[in-house]
C-alpha cells in the first residue's frame, strides 16, 4: 500500500516513471479505496507503462490480460487442460484396467470410475488464465486489463462481475474467492465507449500528451545517454509534430525511441538531414510520413522558437 500521494510520486519516480500530481493522487486513491482504476487517453502516453510502474513500485506481480475482439471467458479465466487429462488417462490405462478387473457388470465399473471422477476435475488440470491467476495469487498482485475497449460488450459485462465481487464460480470446483484483492488497472484507447456500469465501478484517470517540461523530464530520466540539448530539441520537435493533425500522433514511447536512436547515431544537434534519416521512428503511417517530411524545416524552425521561449 502507498502511504500518501507524495509516497506514490516518490516510489514511481524510483522506478523511473514520472507521475504528475493528478496521476499520483488518483493512483493513491485507487490503492486506498480498493477500486479498479480506468486509465484512458490517446495511444502512447504511458498507460500500460503506468501499470508496470505501479507493480514495480509496490513490489507486486503484474498479471496482464490483453483484450482483443473475440476474447472470451475461457481465455481470460481458466481452461481445462484437455490434452493433459487425456495423457493421464492413457498412461493410467493399465492401472484402470486392474482397478476394474473384479467388476462384473458395466454398472459396477461405471460406479467405480465415477468415484474417482474428482481426480480429473481438480486444480491439477485447471489452467488458470490471467483473471483466475490474479484471484489465486498469494500476495496482492497488480492486474492489468489492457485495452479493454477492444473486447466485446459481453466480455465487459463478465469483467464487471469479476471486478465487483472478486470471485468466480467454476462449475466442477465451486466458487473461488480472491485471496487478496488485486490492484486492478484497466486501460482504454477509447475505440468504443465503455458501458456506464463499468465506468461507475472504477475511478477514472485521463492521461493526455505531456507538456514540454514533463516530457523533457521523462526523456532525461529514461534516456540519460542523450545530451541535454538533444533531449530538449527532440521534445520540442515532437511537440510540434503533435500539432500537425496526423492520423497516428507520436506518443511518449516514440519520443523515447527517437531520442535513443539519435543518441546511438551520435547526433548532438537536430538538423533537417538527421530528422529525415530517422523520421520512421516517430511517424509510422505512410500518409503522415509524407506530410511530416515536407514540413521538417518549418517544424524545426518552430521548435527552435519554442525552445527559446521556454529558455532551454
Amino acid at each position: 500500500m502507498f502511504k500518501s500521494v507524495e509516497d506514490v510520486k516518490e516510489r514511481l519516480r524510483r522506478v523511473r516513471y514520472l507521475a504528475n500530481d493528478d496521476v499520483a493522487t488518483v493512483v493513491y486513491l485507487a490503492d486506498r479505496l480498493g477500486k479498479p482504476l480506468l486509465v484512458e487517453g490517446p495511444a502512447g502516453v504511458g498507460k500500460t507503462e503506468l501499470s508496470k510502474a505501479v507493480a514495480d513500485a509496490l513490489g507486486a506481480e503484474l498479471i496482464r490480460l490483453q483484450c482483443y475482439e473475440g476474447l472470451d471467458e475461457a481465455k481470460a479465466l481458466y481452461e481445462w487442460q484437455y490434452a493433459k487429462q487425456m495423457l493421464y488417462t492413457q498412461v493410467l490405462r493399465d492401472r484402470v484396467g486392474e482397478l476394474l478387473a473384479d467388476t462384473r457388470t458395466l454398472r459396477e465399473a461405471f460406479e467405480r470410475i465415477a468415484e474417482e471422477e474428482d481426480l480429473f476435475f481438480s486444480e491439477r488440470f485447471l489452467l488458470p488464465r490471467p483473471l483466475l491467476r490474479a484471484l489465486l495469487s498469494e500476495r496482492r498482485p497488480v492486474l492489468l486489463v489492457d485495452e479493454v475497449d477492444k473486447s466485446d460488450p459481453e466480455f465487459e459485462a463478465f469483467l464487471l462481475e469479476v471486478l465487483s465481487d472478486f470471485q468466480v464460480s467454476i462449475p466442477e470446483l465451486g466458487t473461488i474467492r480472491a485471496r487478496t484483492q488485486p490492484f486492478v488497472l484497466l486501460t482504454s484507447n477509447q475505440a468504443r465507449e465503455l458501458s456506464d456500469a463499468l465506468k461507475r465501478r472504477c475511478l477514472h484517470l485521463f492521461i493526455n500528451y505531456p507538456t514540454f517540461r514533463e516530457e523533457l523530464q521523462v526523456v532525461r530520466v529514461r534516456v540519460p545517454e542523450a545530451s541535454a540539448t538533444l533531449a530538449a530539441e527532440v521534445v520540442a520537435f515532437i511537440q510540434e509534430v503533435r500539432n500537425l493533425a496526423l492520423k497516428k500522433v507520436p506518443g511518449i514511447a516514440e519520443t523515447l525511441d527517437w531520442a535513443r536512436a539519435l543518441a546511438l547515431l551520435n547526433v548532438h544537434h537536430l538538423g533537417v538531414e538527421e530528422v529525415e534519416r530517422t523520421l520512421g521512428v516517430i511517424v509510422k503511417h505512410e500518409g503522415d510520413h509524407a506530410r511530416t517530411r515536407q514540413s521538417i524545416p518549418e517544424l524545426l524552425r518552430r521548435a527552435q522558437l519554442r525552445l527559446r521561449e521556454w529558455g532551454e
Partner: peptide, 25 residues
C-alpha cells in the same frame, strides 16, 4: 476519496473528485 486525499491541497482535491465523479473525457 476526499477523506483519503485530504483537503489541504486544492489540486489534490480536484484530482480526487474528478477521478470519482467524471468518467467521460
Amino acid at each position: 476519496a476526499v477523506q483519503h486525499a485530504g483537503l489541504r491541497d486544492r489540486r489534490t482535491m480536484k484530482a480526487a473528485l474528478r477521478a470519482a465523479l467524471v468518467k467521460r473525457q
